[in-house]
Design a protein around this nucleic acid. Sequence first.
DNA 1: GACGGACTT
Length: 681
Amino acid sequence: MGTERKRKVSLFDVVDETSAKLVKFNGGSAGAGSNLINRWNGRPYSQRYYEILEKRRTLPVWHQKEEFFQALKANQTLILVGETGSGKTTQIPQFVLDAVDLDGPDKRRKYMIGCTQPRRVAAMSVSRRVAEEMDVTIGEEVGYSIRFEDQSSARTVLKYLTDGMLLREAMTDPLLERYKVIILDEAHERTLATDVLFGLLKEVLKNRPDLKLVVMSATLEAEKFQGYFHGAPLMKVPGRLFPVEILYTEEPERDYLEAALRTVTQIHMHEPPGDILVFLTGEEEIEEACRKIHKEVANMGDRVGPVKAVPLYSTLPPAMQQKIFEPAPPPLTEGGPAGRKIVVSTNIAETSLTIDGIVYVIDPGFAKQKVYNPRIRVESLLVSPISKASAHQRAGRAGRTQPGKCYRLYTEKSFNNDLQSQTYPEILRSNLANTVLTLKKLGIDDLVHFDFMDPPAPETLMRALEVLNYLGALDDEGNLTKLGEIMSELPLDPQMGKMLVVSPKFNCSNEILSISAMLSDEDPSWCYENFVNHRALKSADNVRQQLARIMGRFNLKLSSTDFNSRDYYINIRKAMLAGYFMQVAHLERTGHYLTVKDNQVVHLHPSNCLDHKPEWVIYNEFVLTSRNFIRTVTDVRGDWLVDIAPHYFDLANFPPCEARRKLEKIYKKRERDREEEKDTK
DNA sequence: GACGGACTT
């Protein structure tokens, strides 16, 4: 069949010049005489292939193709720095395909090239683009793999996947033996998964001399990467951005929101046409800013053109998000002042979404960032100053289609002296219980000596180990137990994983499965005009199915207590406690709740749906906002605590407090009951 | 009496 196609093609009238060039660009790897045949699927190239090829050749990274080949050939690890527009994400993996031999030792099995992305959408859209460039079908020779969707096949030679997905694959394929080359893209973002992959790959490379690693990053922190990867060579690729003029304020601004709005109106009045992108920190602030912009511009009357202020944040429904791509409004009257689009966005526009046509960026210098307090095991969001790298990225958003301007609402001195150069990697700002469980499953026994690029605080690791030990996922020697094994396979936090795994014992796994799915996904009670969010329910159902499949693999039975039984809800609450016994709060005589053992004063979040204040509650989340809130709470009973988690509520290891005294009473009553029982016998 | 920056398995 293949021969027939080849014959047809040799008669095919293709522009000679293109095919001649093609031989050269395909290198020696395309089979002899097959320059018009796509080596990946044996089909003749389409006209579109040649059209795209012309454009690809103009990408900055193409000028360094030979240099890249040499570096890849000579080294096991390679670091590549390329700014926005260099074409690295789409081109480098294709260069790698041209440079390496994917045949396995027995010739039957072919190796793959894997390229990680921090985000699902990116993995999906980039792989589609590359499939088009290579003139192959997506899901065949070029594919992608993200949660809920595996678009790859036995023929796949290049696979884009989320970094979290590669980490999952490593659980079953510790030496990543399906891969010949792994490319970690967007490494500067330092996601939790990428950071774990760094350390893991360093180990794997030692045991797989034939495996190669390419680390791609957008910043010069690459020199740090170089040090980490034993002085791997660094290749720099220029980006393709228009110049962006940076403007600072003379004095520090007291109120960044007010300053941002003032800057918007000034640009609108005095600057040439071009859209504006304003970075703010959250939904509420953004909606308020949009309202104020419309109001202020309306007050200016006909002197200025019309504006369309559009909000942008991740929880905005997709249809509303699409509005950022609509054009600016036309002038009110023919020949009148031009209209302007003003996108008011969170950090989502810094990395995940690119909007063409932005000429002005307003950067107040703040973002909400996660911080973790290992002492009380609480993660919270805090509005905090951004890093220099982040400011640089924001500014770049103004230069995608023409020269632009970036207004930094802070002084140049502040930029130089106060901003840290890089954002703290996520691994230093997170609860690591889940990460530690993953590492254990990956066979990393000695966490203290695991080669993290930035080692987390020892206390954070200790707290994570402690939590996993209390849950029974790790034994006292720190080894993964059978329970821990199952928990590591579930895409859930350890507490929730434990709750789900033990739920069959409480005869309520159907219900706990639903609860887990609903809690681990976006919240559908954030309803839109009192209707339950359909998309959120669909996605919770998706999660539920995935969890049910994994439970099936471990022979965990799906069961329910009779709905009319008085034990129906009791069993569910007990199963929840079996996972969440470390997140208990006790109602003190003062009327306040105090978290057990950590002794933090907390308040029931107003969104709770209890009709009374129970003496003991377990909570799903501790949120630090205007006060310490515990959110999504469930009423539990004191004697369940000592039944279900006696090892945690062990009085020998318990600070003196009201909760302790209550537990003492329960233990004493237990003793009395036992003795009475003895006497009656 | 009031909350989700961005992501991922």
